[in-house]
Nucleic acid binder design. Structure first.
Length: 756
DNA sequence: GTCGCGCCTTCGAGC
DNA sequence: AAGGCGCGAC
């Protein structure tokens, strides 16, 4: 047993107390910048040093990124000395649950609520797939999609699932007409999922919660295996996650949770803040260690954050302190409009850069992803490197979803949502009529969609031929999945070998199906077509770079089908923040939600305006308003040395230009801790003429048109500037468009987008 | 059966 | 501003 080591170096007494706390329930209330990640990783290292087997430790994080970093840190802490941390399991709740469902899916407790068992290779539906399934469920339950929008239905079902109410339990509680109707739709939705051998995101948690509650042998196996459970960002766990963690930790009680109620920002997707607030009631005798000292931000920033969060009434107050110097005053900026705001923010970034802060040390944060656009434009115009952190954006693209639907059809033959998506992509002459016929046949004979397609008669010869050809291909591709790596490949080289096989396989399917060749079709222009093809190529690359996670000891060697399923699972569970690369050497742009857990020397929170932050949809509800305030608190506390909070007196949003009001949260900041700069002339909105050119755009921006530039017009599409004619203050451009020929446009009004 | 246009709605954060 | 849906033309 080792009682001293590098994992105890340089800790404060509170941090140390948390690290060495006995293997018993422990709540670490960790304020922003208080060394939370440090405490978890070092506690893991300490547990291992105390003799715990690495594979007996389960650490659950919020994102894959955080999981990867945590694993790495533990590795380097223990290093050679303790033979590393092999077998240590660090993952997100969702991927941990997916893994359990692959392993224990045959347990009746993991089955769908109608009893349909989960087969290996089940699909994980994303929000889009779930919406498709919900639409079909609404129709199947006999309701009109006009009165029952899929998105609303889904959010109600999601709420139910997060509270561990399955369709039957929901129906039992349903009293009024709306609830009873929803209960029917919920049941039909579950039937759709079951038919597809699919789960949605909430199911991953719900089914595992049911599994650990109802299946004693699984529960005991997990309790035996995971002797120590640690959970990061505990303030954002929901009830299902609470049940899962509690069940696993129940026998030994070694449960460490770390979080900050003031940073709880996911109530809207089911996070239950009482998990953390009532931890001591849930686990009597639990240790509680507050970490209030902030090592991240200079004193003014901490004071501003503290001053803001004090306005939340439903909270346990803890003092935020720092021993760092006062530092720069946080700046509160009121700009004229969103482009002006972007200019001011980027000006500050340039100033910071000149003062030695690298681009990667800066971030612009916002409440809504749509707000990234102006900042992007400004950074691009000034040739400053930036990345928009939105990991799921790539997977939301149509061509990528289609390509993945091919793979899902192959990995999970029941996945009808996927099959429907690609049955006629590229167009093969299998249209709505054919599909309606197949549906009718399926309903009449209780067939699956694929079987019904094969069996439908009375089709045109062309449709018949198209279906037969396609299904023959599918059968061949599925057969091709039943192969492993050559036996002579040793374990060391296996992951890379399998990745290569997967890449080759994906490329082959997408080529042979004709998908790749047609990937650019239907694009508005050649540019977009090229982009789509590049994205598909990128997906093939991602597949070949995929590394199969380590298998359980004694497990059979994975076949290609297992690799494909693991890949699809990984892809389904990417988080937006997974795309964050601290070494990218670029300014970071991301949502306030995605910024949780990160830190930057310079942070700008843009669009601090009523209706945006707080968001317009929440203002009536005090609990939701407090969550909005916490969101700004999270943003502020990402800043290490420089903070800018900006708003614009005028903003164009969703195509409407409107006067704005500064966020009520700005007024709540301690006035002596912020430096205000009102660049909008004291305007509080409303009094400005929206059309008045209120600030001077950069000369190079106004006169930036040059012959030869490639531009895009909303209506005319792609074109190239032939000539720039200046007539007084008016600039006229002669533009040769690909489709409509040469046009003369007034530069100021044409709203041309420069594309290169 | 397919394609393209225009009207209409929507419109937040995300595993 | 942008995506979904329905209609008409080919």
């Amino acid at each position: 047993m080792v009682t001293e080591g590098p994992w105890l170096d340089g800790l404060t007494s509170a941090q140390r107390a948390a690290v060495v706390h006995p293997a018993a329930p422990l709540l670490v209330l960790a304020g922003p910048g208080s060394g939370k990640t440090r405490v978890i990783t070092r506690r893991i290292a300490h547990l291992v040093a105390q003799g715990a087997a690495p594979w007996s430790i389960l650490a659950l994080t919020f994102t894959n990124k955080a999981a990867g970093e945590m694993k790495e840190r533990v590795h380097s802490l223990l290093g050679a000395e303790l033979a590393g941390a092999r077998g240590l399991q660090v993952s997100t709740f969702h991927s941990f649950c997916a893994t359990l469902l692959r392993r224990y899916g045959s347990s009746p407790a993991a089955a769908a609520s109608d009893g349909t068992p989960l087969a290996p290779g089940f699909s994980i539906f994303d929000t889009d797939d779930a919406r498709d399934a919900a639409k079909r469920a609404i129709a199947a339950a006999g309701f009109d999609s006009k009165n029952w929008p899929a998105a609303i239905v889904l959010s109600r079902i999601s709420d139910a699932k997060n509270k561990l109410l399955d369709a039957a339990a929901y129906a039992a509680e349903a009293g009024d007409f709306t609830s009873r109707s929803l209960a029917k739709i919920y049941r039909a939705y579950e039937a759709e999922l079951a038919k597809c051998n699919a789960v949605d995101f909430d199911d991953l948690l719900l089914r595992v919660a049911r599994l650990v509650r109802q299946d004693a042998s699984v529960r005991e196996e997990l309790q035996q295996r995971y002797r120590h459970v640690l959970i990061d960002e505990y303030q954002d766990t929901n009830h299902a996650q609470f049940v899962i963690a509690g069940a696993i930790a129940q026998s030994h009680g070694s449960l460490t949770v770390v979080g900050d109620p003031d940073q709880s920002i996911y109530a809207w997707r089911g996070a239950d803040i009482t998990n953390i607030l009532d931890f001591e009631q849930h686990f009597p005798g639990a240790g509680v260690i507050p970490l209030g000292q902030n090592f991240r931000s200079t004193a003014h920033i901490v004071a501003v954050a503290d001053g803001l969060i004090r306005h939340n009434t439903r909270r346990k107050h803890k003092d935020l302190t720092t021993e760092l110097e006062a530092g720069a005053m946080p700046q509160v900026i009121r700009a004229l409009d969103e482009r002006h705001e972007a200019r001011v923010v980027v000006d500050e970034m340039v100033r910071q850069h000149e003062a030695g802060v690298p681009w990667k040390g800066m971030a612009a944060l916002y409440r809504m992803n749509a707000l990234s656009r102006v900042i992007e434009d400004e950074l691009r115009r000034r040739s400053i490197p930036y990345v928009v952190v939105r990991g799921t954006a790539f997977y939301e693209r149509r061509e990528i979803k289609d390509a993945l639907a091919y793979l899902r059809t192959l990995a999970n033959p029941s996945d009808e949502v996927a099959l429907r998506r690609i049955i006629n992509v590229p167009t093969r002459g299998i249209g709505a009529t054919t599909i309606a016929r197949a549906d009718a046949l399926a309903a009449a004979h209780g067939l699956g969609f694929e079987a019904a397609l094969a069996a439908t008669d009375g089709l045109t010869a062309r449709a018949r031929k198209a279906i037969d050809g396609f299904l023959a291909n599918v059968a061949q591709w599925r057969a091709d999945l039943m192969q492993g790596a050559p036996h002579e490949v040793d374990d060391e080289d296996l992951p890379q070998m399998l990745g290569g096989m997967l890449g080759g396989y994906v490329a082959r399917v997408l080529t042979e199906s004709g998908f790749e060749a047609a990937a650019g079709e239907g694009s508005a222009d050649a540019e977009e077509a090229a982009e789509r093809r590049a994205n598909v190529a990128e997906l093939v690359t991602a597949a070949s770079e995929f590394r199969m996670p380590a298998q359980e000891p004694g497990a059979p060697r994975p076949q290609l089908v297992d690799v494909l399923r693991a890949f699809l699972e990984r892809v389904a569970l990417v988080a937006d923040s997974d795309a964050f690369d601290p070494e990218a050497g670029a300014v970071t742009l991301m949502s306030l939600h995605a910024a949780k857990g990160l830190e930057f020397p310079f942070v700008a929170v843009i669009a601090c305006e009523e209706g945006i932050l707080p968001h317009s949809r929440v203002q009536a509800d005090p609990a939701q308003l407090e969550e909005e305030r916490r969101l700004l608190f999270v943003g502020i506390t990402r800043a290490e040395r420089q903070l800018m909070l900006s708003s614009a007196a005028m903003r164009t949003l969703r195509g409407i230009r409107e006067a704005t009001m500064e966020s009520q949260f700005i007024e709540e900041l301690p006035a002596d801790r912020v430096a205000r700069r009102d660049l909008a002339g004291g305007s509080r909105g409303g009094s400005i003429d929206p059309d008045a050119p209120s600030w001077e755009p950069d000369p190079d921006e106004r006169q930036g048109w040059k012959a030869g530039m490639r531009v895009r017009h909303r209506q005319f599409g792609m074109g190239q500037i032939e000539a720039v004619l200046r007539q007084g203050s008016v600039t006229t451009l002669r533009v040769a468009f690909r489709t409509v020929g040469v046009k003369s446009l007034v530069a100021e009004y044409a709203r041309l987008e420069i594309v290169g």
